[in-house]
């Protein structure tokens, strides 16, 4: 089954979409089957219930019970490879 990954930012239309596109492409290149979806922070609570991983482009001050990853790394590319490896470790066996 494809892993479900949620990306959230303040609006759900700029940084989170950009990060979602990037992550989607990177996972595909590594042969990982995943649905990556961008949402706004206010819809996060709704979407996160069915998600396997959360990539945050906003501050995280809550425990959602699923692994959380640093979206800024995917946005700027700094620390991206390390974050991608961690993400793949978390979703590859789903």
């Amino acid at each position: 089954m494809a892993a479900k990954i949620i990306v959230a930012c303040g609006s759900g239309i700029a940084t989170s979409q950009t990060v979602a596109n990037k992550v989607s492409k990177l996972l595909k290149e590594r042969g990982i089957d995943a649905d990556v979806e961008a949402v706004d922070i206010h819809s996060l609570k709704h979407y996160i219930k069915s998600a396997d991983a959360y990539i945050a482009v906003v501050k995280v001050d809550e425990d959602y019970g699923i692994p959380v990853f640093n979206g800024v790394a995917f946005l700027t590319g700094m620390g991206q490879d390390e974050e991608l490896d961690k993400l793949i470790d978390a979703v590859k066996d789903l």
């Binding site: 700029a14 940084t15 950009t18 990037k22 482009v57 906003v58």
Partner: peptide, 30 residues
């Protein structure tokens, strides 16, 4: 810093995205 991932930054360039919902902003930001 975005998402509190680091210390405040002294921005040398500020790019203000006047974005709409047409989807084009993703390509520009990337």
């Amino acid at each position: 810093f975005m998402a509190g991932m680091g210390d405040p930054v002294a921005a040398e360039l500020v790019i203000n995205l006047g974005i709409t919902r047409d989807g084009g902003q993703v390509q520009v930001l990337q």
